[in-house]
């Protein structure tokens, strides 16, 4: 993980070596006084390091959200965006970015966060009104996702010019362009907190593996536990999406990869998913940054391009195992 971050920092248009990275880090941590050129220092400390760390946090966070939702909803296809969060975020971002709603006060990220929370609230309300079982949650999520995607497209087609469309599209596909240290702090904090809470609920999540009835008979307050964990994943996802856009596939695929490696017990699955997610995301971001220089590829495109073949591979291996 540390090595991945360090290596990822060296990738890019400007030449930076691992030694440079080490020197810059030591300087900023006050552990050494090594002379480094100011330009390199700026690239490493102000640009690539925060970016790599944010990528790690986003990967870890989306991974654990996906793992929690898959267990909670007994659905291997559940991912952090199942509950309308990504499309809600898109709608929020588009409303701010294209229509200028809320002005500069909230910005694209703020709009995305509000949109995501609002969409999630609507989906949960719909699920509760229709009975509240796992399948209702999923159906409500699908409906919510469709609605907000349509709203996003509507706003883009009706009001945006081509430059704005391109900017919004780029953001929608997930992007870590221009992240700064406050983003690192935000993502890091929510991910660490989220991971801690998920680890605390590891046994509750284990109890769900044979369905709600078995969970209830093992002493789990099913409705309450599910709602708490859904809200937790929603807030976590919304925060990450507001920084990095709708990065797809990480939350869907990586939990499966982690299960494949460490088994289904959540006390081990959660840290494993977080770690794999972090490393994966750092590398995909680094590669998307340099693959089509000087034009960066949206990182969401990279995750899907790498993620889909990986997913197919897992499916095939599982079939053989059965």
């Amino acid at each position: 993980m540390v090595l991945s971050v360090a290596a990822a920092i060296t990738l890019g248009p400007a030449d930076v070596s691992l030694v440079n990275v080490r020197d810059v880090l030591l300087n900023h941590l006050g552990l050494a006084e090594v002379p480094v050129r100011a330009a390199k220092d700026a690239i490493v400390w102000e640009e690539r390091l925060p970016r790599a760390l944010t990528a790690a946090a986003v990967g870890a966070g989306l991974g654990i959200c996906g793992a929690v939702l898959q267990s909670l909803l007994h659905n291997p296809l559940a991912d952090p965006f199942l509950l309308g969060i990504s499309s809600g975020a898109s709608t929020g971002a588009v409303l701010v970015g294209v229509l200028g709603l809320g002005g500069t006060a909230i910005g694209l990220s703020g709009g995305a966060f509000l949109g995501a929370v609002l969409a999630f609230g609507l989906v949960v309300l719909l699920a509760q009104l229709s009975g509240g079982g796992t399948d209702r949650v999923i159906l409500a999520g699908v409906a919510g996702t469709q609605l907000f995607s349509a709203l996003t497209s509507f706003v883009v087609f009706a009001f945006a010019d081509s430059d704005e469309t391109r900017g919004v599209m780029f953001w929608l596909l997930g992007s870590l362009e221009g992240v700064r240290w406050d983003d690192v702090a935000l993502c890091g904090a929510v991910v660490v907190l989220g991971l801690a809470l998920c680890l605390g609920s590891a046994h509750t999540l284990d109890a769900f593996s044979f369905g709600d009835d078995v969970a209830a008979s093992l002493g789990v307050h099913v409705t309450r536990a599910r709602m708490l964990l859904l809200v937790l994943t929603a807030v976590l996802t919304a925060a990450l999406v507001s920084v990095a856009g709708a990065v797809g596939f990480v939350g869907l695929v990586l939990p499966h990869a982690a299960r494949f490696l460490v088994g289904p017990r959540h006390a081990r699955l959660m840290p494993a998913t977080a770690l794999i997610g972090a490393v994966f995301m750092v590398w995909v971001d680094a590669v998307s940054r340099v693959a089509f220089q000087p034009t960066p590829l949206p990182v969401g495109v990279g995750t899907a391009l790498v993620g889909v073949p990986a997913f197919v591979l897992i499916l095939l291996r599982r079939r053989r195992a059965r």
């Binding site: 007994h74 593996s209 078995v214 299960r259």
Partner: peptide
């Protein structure tokens, strides 16, 4: 403790 009729899982447990 309860043993219900349809307890199944997708996970490789």
């Amino acid at each position: 403790a309860v043993v219900s009729q349809h307890a199944d899982t997708d996970t490789d447990i």
